[in-house]
Design a binder for these strands. Structure first.
Length: 139
DNA sequence: GCCAACGTTGGC
DNA sequence: GCCAACGTTGGC
């Protein structure tokens, strides 16, 4: 079981919208970056991911579960791009902001901190637990 | 709104 | 295969 982080602009597709998709969830489509795509290819059903609001928000707000392995992205005919399916698992009791994350020395190596542009990224188990604790949320 | 960082494209 | 030009992302 691995941990990940999915980034989305709340103005485009926010956590509320993910929650509204219910237990069925949906495709994490629209990724057009090889590194991000490769991360999705490495995912397996049951993996967990943080749902992070970029731009306006800049905080981890929820936890999603990967429900389907990588498959073609239905929003394009380009065979290069595929994606997983995710569903909302639970909301953070308290959103954990990027500012808070940056303030924790143990989280300085997070991809979110080091490479802020990567939209789908791996999260280490220690990082996962630390952030869940910061948000008063079950890991 | 600005700008730095990064990824992609295309000419050579 | 290199590198300049360009486009995009996201923090501030």
């Amino acid at each position: 079981m691995a941990y990940w982080l999915f980034k989305s602009e709340p103005d485009v597709f926010g956590w509320e919208e993910q929650v509204a998709l219910g237990d069925t969830g949906g495709e994490w489509h629209g990724v057009r970056n090889y590194q991000a795509r490769n991360n999705m290819r490495a995912m397996q059903p049951g993996d967990l991911g943080f749902f992070y609001h970029s731009q306006k928000g800049r905080a981890v707000v929820g936890i999603v579960e990967v429900t389907a392995p990588c498959h073609p992205d239905s929003t394009t005919d380009d065979p290069r791009w595929d994606c997983v399916d995710v569903r909302a698992l639970r909301s953070f009791a308290r959103a954990v902001t990027l500012e808070e994350i940056r303030a924790v020395p143990e989280l300085a190596e997070m991809v979110l901190v080091k490479n802020s542009r990567l939209s789908v990224q791996p999260v280490a188990a220690e990082e996962w637990h630390r952030i869940c604790a910061l948000g008063d949320t079950a890991p």
